[in-house]
Amino acid sequence: MDTAKLELAAQRYREAEAALDSARAELQAEALAFLQQTEERGAQATVVRVTGWTREHVRRMVRSSEEKTG
């Protein structure tokens, strides 16, 4: 692999990582909005099922959001 190919691969990786970070932030925002806007029983379970996150991850995300918004 020459330097140009290495640099190109590194750039593609950085772009993919940035896109993943953006998608993750968007998904978290949508999940939090869903949880805040619904009184549906089992809403957290729905988020777990749709996202593939663990229940603990969702709980931590909600807790963190509540701490930030007061």
Rank of each mutant, 00 (worst) to 15 (best):
M1K: 03
M1I: 15
M1W: 07
D2G: 15
A4F: 13
A4K: 11
K5F: 14
L6A: 14
E7C: 08
A10H: 12
Q11C: 05
Y13V: 08
R14D: 06
A16P: 00
A18P: 03
A19Q: 09
L20Y: 15
S22W: 04
A23N: 03
A23I: 11
R24V: 13
R24H: 08
E26Y: 09
E26W: 02
L27W: 01
Q28C: 10
A29C: 04
A31D: 00
L32D: 01
L32C: 06
L32S: 07
L32Y: 06
A33Y: 15
F34S: 02
L35K: 01
L35R: 04
Q36G: 05
T38N: 06
T38R: 10
T38P: 00
T38Y: 11
E39Q: 13
E39S: 12
E40G: 04
G42R: 10
A43N: 04
A45C: 02
A45L: 08
T46L: 10
V48H: 02
V48D: 05
R49G: 03
V50L: 14
V50H: 08
W53H: 03
W53G: 00
T54P: 00
T54N: 05
R55Q: 06
E56I: 13
H57A: 14
H57G: 00
V58D: 00
R59E: 06
R59W: 09
R60N: 12
R60C: 12
M61C: 03
M61V: 10
R63N: 09
R63Q: 12
S64I: 07
S64C: 09
S65F: 15
E66A: 12
E66C: 04
E67G: 02
T69D: 01
T69Q: 14
T69R: 15
T69M: 10
